[in-house]
Write a protein that binds this DNA or RNA. Structure first.
Lengths: 185, 185
DNA sequence: ATACAATCGGGACGCTCGTTCCGTTTAGCA
DNA sequence: TGCTAAACGGAACGAGCGTCCCGATTGTAT
């Protein structure tokens, strides 16, 4: 659903890809607050070029968050197959790490000026399903206490990302505490 | 250190107090992002009047955060005297609740466009001391495991405030998990 | 090689917001 | 009551940013 209709002209396709790549890096480093002009500058194109491909700054941001989510989901599914009991923890802490280097993703989860469920409903649904699977699997394996639910996991994600983002490596020390809290007594 | 030199004229004193009160409420509701004009409007004064009393928006914000911190610290000391083992938990969860209604305070802890340690060094020091006291006390009482340190507590505060702020009452369900994680096995 | 349409770059526009300025109003005092 | 300095309100200014527009450029089909 990105390159239908008639094919883009060669230069247009090149620029589109370039913008996407640069925007990805830039949002990750600076968060959703970066000026479009900054992305344009880094990509070596004019602001007008960005607007030809993405009608709005918001839409560019969405495109990137959606892609990022896909990656995270895919990775988590792999991990989960490898070690059922650890899947949820790996997912949780991986997401926290991502939050450290990807401000865009953090904002998407926290809902800061960007509502995931509204903007990318399918991605949100897939994400929720993944969490439910990982959680059920971990509970079956006995590594997570049975009274924890999916909403609790979402809440923890928000908290963990905030810790990682604002407290850096200090957050590493807290992971074991969280894990202990989630484990059956 | 607020009303030295020659006393303010009656109307000036009234306006200053009014601005402080309104700014307090407004920052709490909207966070540090609210326009000064909005605060001025709510207070029924002109923007110029605010700038007569506070040289900068930042300085107004600081004045209010400092006051808020004083209240929190005072309350925590009272609590701690009542129940040594619970002092740290009460403090932690109270702070999380505060984060829900006081965006300004959350931003101060997270360091979002406002560095507490740099802007209000004394307040920051007092705060750190309080945490160290509460923590040591709880560890002595045996309600917190001995390998937790003050930096871990700071990290948890950031996480808990984020949870409360972005996930609302969902966060309540996570408090027991955090507590379980902090408790000696 | 030529022509035409797609695409480009970056200046212009409009809006928001922090801060300043200044003509007007008012408290405090004699 | 009248005078003066303090204080007021809100218009004005400048900077930042999202978005739009348009003359210049370039890919592509013939």
């Amino acid at each position: 659903m990105t390159e239908k209709d008639r094919p883009l002209r060669a230069d247009a396709a090149r620029n589109r890809a370039r913008v996407l790549r640069v925007a990805y890096e830039t949002f990750a480093e600076e968060g959703g607050g970066v000026p479009i002009d900054e992305i344009a500058r880094r990509a070596g194109v004019g602001a007008g070029t960005i607007y030809r491909h993405f009608p709005t700054k918001e839409s560019l941001f969405q495109a990137i968050v959606a892609d990022r989510l896909r990656q995270v989901v895919e990775r988590a599914r792999d991990q989960a197959a490898t070690d059922p009991g650890e899947g949820l923890y790996a997912f949780l802490f991986h997401l926290a790490e991502q939050g450290a280097t990807d401000l865009g993703l953090t904002e998407a989860f926290a809902g800061t000026g960007f509502d995931l469920a509204t903007s990318l409903p399918e991605a949100e649904r897939e994400f929720t399903t993944l969490m439910a699977d990982l959680l059920a699997q971990a509970q079956r394996a006995g590594t997570v206490r049975p009274d924890v639910d999916v909403d609790d996991v979402k809440t923890l994600i928000v908290g963990l990302q905030a810790m990682r983002r604002f407290r850096g490596e200090q957050a590493d020390r807290v992971y074991p505490l969280i894990r202990a809290g989630l484990t059956r007594r």
